[in-house]
């Protein structure tokens, strides 16, 4: 795992919206485990500071009004984020951050209300999909254990879109059992094809519903598999 000094650390912009609530957890995880202090960027900004990557944290941006992530997708800073991504910049969207990335059309599909109608907060197992992104290559065949916490995390895309995702190796994470088999029992929210996370065609934009930053410290029990995901995010632009 990577560890940086203050002078040598990558510059990661942490995009904050009114209602973001996982920003501090993200900062804590990156600072304590990697030596990286994230650079907060408020949603009203029209430009990004000099950054190597951007991180969109979880929460309930704009109160989830209209649709989760829909109003955030049209906030001033997202124009700068889209421009950054269009030039090959790396981005990681976690939970509400994933919803914002789909509403911004930086990732395909949509996140809808859970099949069960319940807000689900629990650990899940994730199988890593096949593809050429650094996420799929670096995390390989292992089964990851990460927590989810969402009411609207049911990934949806139509049949043609799903075929394209598979053909282009964009399915990064699928809800699975402990052995890594994706089936209906291991699908917590009714997501199409058990999809929990996808990458962009160039492999540089990652969106996932599970929270890697919440699985980084043994003190919290459960799992520290989130560290591997955050480490891979760093690999995606370094």
């Amino acid at each position: 795992m990577k560890r940086f000094t203050a002078a040598g650390a990558p510059r990661i912009g942490l995009i904050d919206f009114p209602g973001s609530n996982c920003d501090r957890d993200c900062n804590d995880a990156f600072e304590r485990h990697f030596g990286i202090k994230l650079i907060p960027v408020w949603h009203t900004e029209h430009t990004l500071p000099q950054v190597d990557a951007v991180l969109l944290p979880g929460g309930f941006s704009y109160g989830d009004y209209l649709r989760s992530g829909a109003l955030a997708a049209h906030s001033p800073i997202m124009g700068a984020v889209k421009s950054f991504v269009s030039k090959g910049g790396a981005a990681l969207g976690i939970c509400n951050g994933f919803q914002i990335l789909t509403e911004s059309h930086l990732l395909p599909g949509a996140l809808l209300r859970n099949r069960s109608r319940r807000f689900i907060c629990k650990f899940v197992n994730l199988a890593v999909g096949s593809g050429n992104s650094v996420y799929q290559k670096q995390l390989g065949q292992r089964v990851l254990r990460l927590p989810i916490a969402h009411g609207e995390g049911r990934y949806y895309i139509d049949g043609e879109g799903l075929r394209r995702l598979h053909d282009q190796g964009q399915v990064a994470f699928r809800y699975a059992d402990a052995k890594g088999h994706a089936n209906d029992e291991s699908n917590p929210n009714g997501a199409v094809d058990n999809i929990a996370g996808i990458v962009s065609e160039n492999g540089r934009v990652m969106g996932l519903m599970p929270h890697p930053e919440r699985a980084t410290d043994p003190l919290l029990g459960g799992s520290v598999d989130g560290l591997a995901v955050l480490d891979t995010f760093l690999s995606s632009f370094m």
């Binding site: 209300r113 859970n114 109608r117």
Partner: peptide
């Protein structure tokens, strides 16, 4: 409204 082919859990519950 949701497209007809998309599950609407709220409608189903009602």
């Amino acid at each position: 409204r949701l497209k007809p082919e998309v599950l609407d859990p709220e409608a189903r519950a009602i």
